[in-house]
Amino acid sequence: MAEVKLTPKVEIGIMLEAEVITPDVFAEKNTNEIENLLVWQGSSQFPISDFFVVEGNGGSSAEATSIVIEGDVTRVKRIGCQMTAGSITINGSAGMHVGSEMAGGEITVKGDANSWAGMEMKGGLLHITGNVKDHLGCAYRGSWHGMTGGRIVIDGNAQSQVGGGMSGGEIIVNGNVENFCGIRQNGGLIVVKGDAVRTVGVEMSAGIIVVGGHIRNFSPGFEYVDTESNLNFDDIMCSGEFQKYIGDYALGKRVKGLLYASKNANEEL
C-alpha cells in the first residue's frame, strides 16, 4: 500500500475546507500533484503545500492508498469526506466533518474530533480514540436522512445529536453522550456504554439504542416491554441486565424503535 504523509507546517487561521484529503483524490497522484491540490480557506483557494509538508505518492487506486497526517488538524475540515476506500490515520485531533458522507475504507483519529464526524456516513469504519462534539453520524441540518451504513467507534465521549435520523450502520460510544442521542432514528444501532443526559431516542420509529449507563431524564414516549440480559448484536456485546422499551410513541402509534436502558444504572425506572 502506498503511503502519503502530510505534516502540518503552519498555524492555520481561518479553517480549511479540505475535502480533497481522501485516498480517492490522492490515488494515482505523485507528491507534486498532491501538493498542488487546492483547499478552500474562506473565499480563496490555496495549494495543500501551503499548509502541509507532503511526502510520498498515492497508490494505483483509492484502496491502495493510505494517508497519514502527523499532527494536529483541528482547523482542517472535511478530511476523508466522501471517501470510498483506502485509509486515513490522523495522529492528532481532527476538525469538523471528518469522514462525513464516507462510503468505505477506514479513518482512525488518534485524538479528538469536532462536530459532524461521520455525518450521513454510508459505509466504512471511523474510529476516534478521543472525544467528539455534536452531530456524530447525524443527518445534516434540516434533514432526517442520516447515517445509512458503516461503523463509528468513539473511545471517549460524544455530545448531542448522536445518530440523528440514522437508518443503518452502527455507532458505538464507549463514554457518555449528552442530549438527543438517536433522535429520529429509523434503523441501525447506537450503543452508548456510559451515561446520557436526556431525550434519548426521541421521535425514533425503528432501530436500536442501548445505554449502558444512567439516563438522567428518560423520554416519556417509551413503553416498558421486558427485561433482557447480555445483549448480542453480531459482534457487539452489551453485558448486564437491560430494561427494554418500545417508542417513541410521541411520534405515532406504529413505532418500533427499541431502547435498552441498563437496569442497575437506572433504578428509578
Partner: peptide
C-alpha cells in the same frame, strides 16, 4: 430558510 439540507 426552512431547507438548509436543500442547499448544501
Amino acid at each position: 430558510l426552512m431547507r438548509p439540507e436543500d442547499h448544501y
